[in-house]
């Protein structure tokens, strides 16, 4: 086990995906037959999914369709009723160092006594360990991550004093500090201002350009076609997955949202043309 995780760390530092013959088996994130239930009702039922490297994938579906649940179950943050998860072909426990996670902004208490830079440094905790000393280089790295999201001026601000968009950027900076190969973001664009949305998408696109896998739970159908390469449509069960060009179609959206999307609304979206 120790040997394996050592290899993973090396691969993570090189920024390369491990090569394996089976594309699904070595995908940045693959889930198979995942079911999660709250009480007696499945929130996610028997979902198979593969999220590719060097691409941005949107997980799309109506409220309560299990988007965030799927993400959390894949991370092991909430228990699964059944199913398996692999990260770069490894069980998740050995591949944690290659994953960065951005939880929903509303999931934490922003009244917590911490400054912006404190939060970004949390992204390095795994690497520093419990007692390791924080080096100047690590501090500089945290500052660089903060600069990347345009928040350098706020490093010493208490997190409760930030706007919603600024908080979201701090969370993204923390994920950047993790130096991962797979980025999982839960509703990163929810309730943020336009400037923040642009800043976040720029960062995510540069991650993609570096060959990383980016997976976002996403709400805004209007921006799917411009931001993302792949979509994963879910409503408790998987409805469809694939490149935006072939999968983000009116028929699939109807199957996902039922009658909740008016036909006119669907027409306005920059939908793929079902060839």
């Amino acid at each position: 086990m120790a040997l394996r995780s050592a290899q993973v760390t090396v691969a993570a530092q090189d920024g390369q995906a491990l090569r394996a013959p089976d594309p699904v088996a070595s995908a940045p994130l693959a889930v198979r037959g995942v079911t999660v239930s709250y009480g007696e009702k499945p929130a996610v039922f028997s979902v198979d999914a593969t999220f590719p490297a060097g691409a941005m994938t949107a997980i799309i579906g109506p409220n309560g369709a299990g988007k965030s649940t799927l993400l959390k179950a894949a991370l092991g943050v909430i228990p699964r009723l059944s199913g398996e998860v692999s990260v770069f072909g490894q069980p998740i426990e050995t591949a944690r160092a290659r994953i960065a996670y951005v939880p929903q902004r509303a999931s934490v208490d922003w009244d917590f006594p911490a400054s912006v830079i404190d939060v970004v440094l949390m992204g390095l905790y795994r690497r520093i360990g419990l007692l390791g000393r924080l080096t100047g280089a690590q501090r500089a790295k945290a500052n660089a991550c903060l600069a990347r999201v345009g928040m350098s001026d706020f490093a010493d601000r208490q997190i409760g004093q930030l706007s919603g968009g600024q908080q979201q950027r701090v969370f993204l900076a923390r994920a950047l500090a993790q130096d991962a190969d797979l980025y999982l973001l839960d509703e990163p664009f929810a309730g943020v201002d336009a400037a923040t949305e642009r800043a976040i998408i720029d960062v995510l696109k540069s991650l993609k350009a570096d060959g990383k896998a980016v997976v976002c739970v996403h709400h805004d159908l209007a921006t799917v076609a411009t931001y993302f390469d792949h979509v994963f449509l879910i409503n408790v069960r998987k409805i469809a997955e694939g490149p935006v060009a072939t999968t983000f179609t009116g028929a699939n959206l109807n199957a996902t949202y039922g009658g909740r999307l008016a036909a006119t609304h669907i027409d306005q979206l920059a939908l793929a043309d079902p060839a």
């Binding site: 499945p42 039922f45 409503n235 408790v236 949202y257 039922g258 909740r260």
Partner: peptide, 17 residues
């Protein structure tokens, strides 16, 4: 069924069970 009845009430019931 989902093709014919594309309504909101139905999609939630399509939960596999």
């Amino acid at each position: 069924a989902r093709e014919i009845h594309q309504d909101a009430g139905l999609t939630g019931r399509y939960d596999g069970l």
